[in-house]
Every structure is written in C-alpha cells, then in structure tokens.
Computed example of a mutant assay.
Amino acid sequence: MAFMLVLFPSDVLRPRRCDEHFAAEADAARSAGHQVAVVDHDALASGAAEQAVSRVPSDAVAVYRGWMLDSQAYEGFAAALRRRGVRLLTTPEQYRRAHELPGWYAALAAFTPASAWTVGTDRSAFDTARESLGAGAGVLRDYTKSMKHHWDEAVYIPDLTNGPAAWSVAERLHELRGDDFAGGFVVRRFEQFTGAEVRTWWIHGTCRLITAHPDTPDESPPADADVVVPAGVAAAIATLRLPFVTVDLARRADGIWRIIELGDGQVSDRPSTTPPAALIAVLPTGDEPAGPAEPQPATPSMPPAEFALSVSDVFVLGNRGIVAAGPDTGAEFRSGGEVQIWNGDELRGRSTAFVELHSRQGTIALLLTSAGTHVRPGDRITGPRR
C-alpha cells in the first residue's frame, strides 16, 4: 500500500493541532503509517489558500478529511498545494462533479428522484425547472445542500403546480442558506422513504465501507452492499470516475433502495459509531486501479467549422436528459447528431443531442440524452450543422 499525506483542519485556537472533531481520524492515520498535516479551513474558505497551507510539507500526494469547502475554495486549495509540489488525489473538476448535484445526476438519474435545476436564483428559471417535473409533491435544495431541519418552510413543496407557494419555499431556502447558497435551485420529485439513511463509501467506483448516516449514528445499516446498493448503481458510479465519494441511500416505501445524494468523500462526515481506523483503512492511496480508461480521440482539438453553442444555462428535463442553452448565433444544428462538450481546449465528453423547440427567444437549447453527460455554464458545445 502507498502511504499518503492526509490533511485535516487545524484547531482554531491551537493552529498547530488538528481540529478536535477530526483528531481521532488523524491519530488513526498516523498509526496506519500516513503522514498528517493541518490546514487552516477558515483561510481556505475566505480565499487565503497560500496562508491556509503554510504548514503542509512539500512533494506528496494528498487526501483531505475536513469541513466542507465550496468548489471555488477547493480549486484555490488545490492550486496552492500544487505550488508546494503537493497533488490532491481528487482534482478540482472531480470535486465539483461530486460535490454539486448537477455533476453527478445524469449518471445516477435512474436511481434517484427526478430532478431539475436552475443556474442562479431567477424566478422564471425556477418555474421552468418546477414545471418540468409535472404534478405532485417536491423537495428543494441548492447544488450542495438542503435545509432539512426547516422542512416545512424551506424544503417541502406539497404541490409543484402551485407556483406562488413553491416560490415562497424557494425564497426561504435562499434566505436561510445566505452566502452559502450554491449554484441554483434544485427541485426534486418527492418520494416517501422509511427508516434511516445509510452512508456508503466508494473508492474508484467500488463500495469499500457501509456505515450509518451521521444524523442517525445508532441506526445500524445492513452489512451487505448487495442489500443496500441496487443492481446497476456500481457501474453507474464507476462511469463518474471519482476517486473518493460517499453515496447516501434510503429505502423507499415500496422497499426499493434509492440514492439520496452523492458527495465528495473528503468532506463527508463519519458517523460517531464508526471507528476512525475503519475509515482510514479504506482511504484512497493512489495505488488502487482507477477503472478502465475512458475512450478519447487522439489529441482532440476543437473543430472550427461546425455548429457551436456557448453554454450559459443548464438544467434537467425530468428523466429526458440535460438541457444546455446559450445565445442563438443563427447557425442551424442537425438534430439527433453527436456533439462534443468542451471546457476551454479540453474535451469533456460527447452526447447525442436534439434541438429543444421551447427555447426562449434569442437563445438556442440542446437536449443532451447520453448517460453520464456532464456540462456546465461556460462550456462550449460543437456539433454538425444542418
């Protein structure tokens, strides 16, 4: 086994020591032979990444176990560590894909409640997302978190067709999340669950540990992954190609286990009833097989003479696929053709695409239907002209 550098948040009052919440994990990591260092979480969250990592040794591969960071803070974290010769095993792009629901939803749509989302907090975009789910009850969150302890006022929408009442819930969610509000509104179809949630821990697409959920640490989960994890879920998670994630599941009223959420394992809390050594024993170390390589064309470059869409908005139409929209340049797209999704000069993926006829005036929208598609605002989509 390769030994890692494991990074933990420092204690606010004693900055050379690990935060008390993670002290037992730090001790377990040292006992397992890993090197341990601390980072200043508050400095990371405020954008002072260089200051935050000043006590981190150089030249290592690292995994973080600590408090939640937004995607932008994590990107600064990774960049500051790179300048010290330290590589986080989870890249900023992988962290965003795991940490924000739009990053993982397409791959797991068959196993989780139908969802649609907005980019930002615009009322009309919220209504579009809400209406795409049709009638029935819904629940609301942002890209990273719900306010489940404020269920009636900021989460549960009894009737998705009641626009004013639903918007009242959205406004309250936005108010309660404040500066921590992430990305946009995520509207999910309500499903009735029974019993406590179960947290599963995955390393490179393989379930390595099953624990209680941190909110219900005394509710023992089934020990067998075949009981908790529905057929097909492992293969779907593997397509995300994420080194370290958690997947929370709950049993629906009809007995089927459903995915509630996927999250980055570095910022997922360990339930108090799980021994620290049990989690440290399954941490990714960089020597695990990362799964089959994704097929990529040799030295891809962005085609200059095809239809191109600069993505400004992304949302989901129920289980139909992901809609990517942007300014209409007048170039006509051949509906049903294959498109390429680019982030700068990097090819992020491919999908079959269809023209979405209900686009707002002045925009064009494409419905991307291939499983595992990932797209976000700022990407560029190219494809065949008509």
Rank of each mutant, 00 (worst) to 15 (best):
R30L: 15
Q361N: 06
P57S: 06
E294W: 10
A110C: 09
A308V: 12
V227T: 15
L108M: 14
I280S: 07
L81M: 13
V282Q: 01
D159H: 07
G120V: 05
F307S: 07
P243Y: 08
A308P: 00
A225I: 08
G66A: 10
T91M: 04
K148P: 00
R386W: 02
G76W: 05
D19T: 04
E332A: 14
N162P: 03
A116S: 15
D345G: 11
S312Y: 01
A26T: 03
F333T: 05
T363P: 00
Y105S: 04
R130Q: 07
A298L: 06
L367A: 14
D345E: 15
G286A: 05
R55F: 03
Q51F: 11
G265W: 06
T239S: 15
A353W: 06
S272D: 13
A45T: 12
A325I: 04
F244M: 11
I381L: 03
E25P: 01
H21M: 06
P327C: 06
H34P: 02
I157V: 15
L368S: 11
G134R: 05
A2S: 14
A78C: 15
A170T: 09
A325C: 14
D226P: 03
W151D: 12
F307P: 04
G337T: 06
T90M: 11
V247C: 11
R270Q: 11
V139I: 15
E175W: 12
V56N: 07
V228D: 11
R334S: 13
Q296M: 11
A129E: 09
S310W: 10
R87G: 04
S10C: 15
D180A: 14
G255K: 05
E197D: 14
L366M: 07
A107C: 07
T211H: 03
Q72K: 05
R87P: 00
T211R: 08
V323K: 01
G378F: 01
S272A: 15
P304L: 11
T216V: 05
L5Q: 02
T369H: 00
A298I: 07
V6C: 09
D19P: 02
A45L: 13
S310T: 11
S115V: 05
